[in-house]
Design a protein around this nucleic acid. Structure first.
Length: 149
DNA sequence: GCCAACGTTGGC
DNA sequence: GCCAACGTTGGC
C-alpha cells in the first residue's frame, strides 16, 4: 500500500467539505507529473489532504483511494473550469480517482512547521521550487507526519 | 499583491 | 528541437 499527498484549495474543496461528502471524485488535475502519480494509485492507498493558497496552508487530514484512475470527465465539460479542448471521449489526457474521507486532524500541520522537520527534508512539498499538487510520501515520511498530529 | 519558480505554448 | 514569452502556482 502506497502513500500520497494531495493539495486542494479549501475554497474549492476543504477537509470539512470532504468530511461531509464522505466520498468524492478527485478531478481537475492538469499537470502531467501529478497525473502520472494519480495513475499509480491503487484502492486502499492513503493520502494526506493539504490545504493550499489559504490563510493557514498545511496538512489537515487523511483520505483513502477507493477507485483507481479513470478518464477525467471534467476535461470534457465545455462549461466547466477544467475543460480541455485537446481531450475527447476517445482520447482524454487527464485522469481522476475516487477518494473517501478518513480523518480530520485536530489542528493544521502548517507548512512552516513541516519545513522544520528534518525527517521531511526529502518530501517534495517542502522543497524549494516544487509545486506538485500530487506527490508520493514514503512510509517513513508518513509515520513522521502522523506523529506530528 | 508580490514574486520566484516552474510548466506550457508557439514561432522559427 | 530551441527558447522566449506567457501563464500558473503558492507561500509570504
Amino acid at each position: 500500500m502506497a502513500h500520497w499527498l494531495m493539495k486542494s484549495e479549501p475554497e474549492e474543496l476543504s477537509i470539512k467539505d470532504f468530511q461531509r461528502l464522505g466520498e468524492t471524485r478527485w478531478d481537475g488535475v492538469r499537470n502531467y507529473q501529478a497525473r502520472n502519480f494519480m495513475r499509480a494509485m491503487a484502492p486502499d492507498d492513503t493520502f494526506f489532504f493539504y490545504h493550499s493558497s489559504c490563510a493557514q496552508p498545511g496538512i489537515v487530514g487523511i483520505g483513502r483511494i477507493v477507485q483507481a484512475a479513470y478518464p477525467d470527465p471534467s476535461a470534457l465539460d465545455p462549461g466547466g473550469a477544467y475543460f480541455d479542448a485537446k481531450s475527447s471521449e476517445q482520447k482524454n489526457r487527464w485522469s481522476a480517482v475516487n477518494v473517501s474521507f478518513v480523518e480530520a486532524f485536530p489542528q493544521v500541520l502548517k507548512i512552516s512547521f513541516l519545513k522544520q522537520q528534518s525527517s521531511l527534508e526529502k518530501l517534495p512539498l517542502v522543497q524549494k521550487g516544487t509545486r506538485l499538487s500530487v506527490m508520493p510520501v514514503t512510509a517513513e515520511q508518513w509515520q513522521a507526519i502522523l506523529a506530528l498530529r
